[in-house]
Design a protein around this nucleic acid. Structure first.
Length: 397
RNA sequence: GCGUCGGUGGCGGAGUGGUCAAUCGCACUUGGCUGUAAACCAAGCGGCUUCGGCCUACGGGGGUUCGAAUCCCUCCCGGCGCA
């Protein structure tokens, strides 16, 4: 018996959207939901009471980062991730697979998880994982069939992740839900490499699932999600989703890199193939428009660094979702809040000119106030979408 | 008043005959950021430009020189010392 269950409460009559509840040992996640990214057991710059005030129900932390610092044994000794970070609500951990991408193929390059333009296929993408090539390029991660070897970005020490090791670490961290170890590929990787990486990810998924099932205690408390890959190729995406659907995960992550248009297409293909009764998590996606599209496609969970990273670099979601660079000259004497219609702590208490001043003066409160606002903006956006699905569903009856 | 040191782009501060429209830092301006090596990174920052250049600039004025932010004279301004 898994530690988590998913219940669908309502379905939109206009799209594939659905509203539901994920029950976890640490409470419920009302879906669709936006999950805050708390990589190193902290949502950067925001305290737990602030997160609760914003309305966040769930945080996702990272296996790779917590393994390197402070180490999963330390977290376990603290009583698990919940106790360690003082968060008593649902928690997820990502497997570290994304770091294989960001420290491997994407390392030192301007490769983004999202590519906006039509990229030419890079048929040599497979070769970037060759150890020699990798060392030439100064990459920190190298992939083989068994797992990934990587050097710590913190102190250069050598480490190795296998699916079993990732699961073991995630058991120690003790989040309510965690992800199977996967390989996130670059959007421009060609079909050949995407297939190779995808098939390896499937084998890793099975190994992760097996490793999880062997730990009866963890199995009772934690759920595991498999991650669909396949790049932007329909055949691969569908194949990947079908393969994972056959593995009886508690839910499914949709991973990989995308082109902007893929949010509609690739996610749609995947969802067609996934079991309806299991939750789906679109990994690493979080622009307002992407959230709306994902929800329409039937996505239940999202996580993204975008709100907090943008906030720290002085960009906030303004009225109607426009992005404001708060340090622009225009705001230095602007007595309005970031968004007069916003009900977040920041907008209820502070002006644009004040926040602009904090950023110019490099005061850390600026990043905190901006993060509160951006998180609130996305959480509220998703909650409203959820309410709409519920209302639409009721009107149908 | 005498002596002395110094006046360089928004600020600080290099440069001390040509490769200087002038190193660098700060400030400023504008981009970028989507499972966080990110409180970060990048570009710009005298004016004009058909992007090849052109013009105006290193306190003011004058001079030496093929050539001056750099040397000389003079004036103005500031710091310090002595009266």
């Amino acid at each position: 018996m898994s530690g988590i269950t998913f219940e669908i409460l309502a379905r939109s009559q206009h799209s594939k959207a659905r509203a539901g509840v994920i029950h976890t040992p640490h409470g419920v996640i009302e879906t669709p939901a936006f999950v805050a990214v708390g990589t190193k057991a902290t949502v950067k710059g925001v305290t737990v009471p602030m997160l609760k005030d914003i309305g966040l129900s769930t945080i996702i932390a990272n296996t790779y980062h917590l393994h390197l610092q402070p180490g999963s044994e330390i977290v376990q000794r603290a009583g698990g991730l919940h106790t360690f970070m003082g968060w008593d609500k649902p928690l997820l951990t990502d497997s570290g697979g994304f770091q294989v991408f960001s420290l491997g193929a994407a390392y030192g390059r301007t490769v983004s998880k999202i590519s906006k333009e039509d990229l030419e296929e890079d048929t040599t993408a497979a070769s970037v994982y060759d150890p020699d090539v990798a060392s030439q390029h100064g990459k920190l991660a190298v992939i083989d069939e068994e797992g990934v070897s990587f050097t710590s970005h913190i102190d250069g020490s050598l480490h190795r992740f296998t699916p079993e090791r990732s699961v073991e670490i995630q058991h120690r961290l003790g989040a309510d839900l965690f992800f199977a170890f996967d390989e996130c590929t670059a959007a421009e990787a060609g079909h050949e490499y995407q297939r190779e990486a995808m098939e390896r990810t499937h084998r890793w998924a099975m190994r992760s699932l097996t490793a999880h099932r062997q730990n009866l205690d963890a199995r009772r408390k934690q759920g595991i999600f498999g991650i669909v890959q396949g790049g932007r190729f329909e055949d691969l995406r569908r194949e990947s989703a079908r393969a994972l659907a056959g593995m009886d995960f508690d839910g499914y992550g949709i991973g990989g890199s995308y082109q902007k248009v893929d949010i509609d297409t690739a996610v749609g293909w995947v969802i067609d193939e996934l079991p309806d009764e299991r939750p789906r998590h679109l990994l690493g996606i979080g622009e307002p428009e992407d959230l709306r599209r994902g929800i329409e496609q039937g996505v239940d969970l999202f996580d993204c660094v975008q709100p907090t990273r943008l906030a720290r670099t002085g960009v906030v979601y303004g009225p109607n979702g426009t992005k404001l660079s708060i340090t622009h000259a225009a705001y230095t004497e602007d007595t309005e809040p970031i968004d007069a219609t916003c009900e977040c702590y920041t907008c209820r208490h502070h002006t644009r000119m004040y926040i602009a001043h904090l950023f110019r003066a490099r005061e850390m409160l600026g990043a905190t106030l901006a993060s509160i606002h951006n998180l609130h903006y996305l959480v509220t956006l998703v909650r409203r979408e959820r309410e709409r699905i519920l209302v639409e569903s009721e009107s149908l009856r």
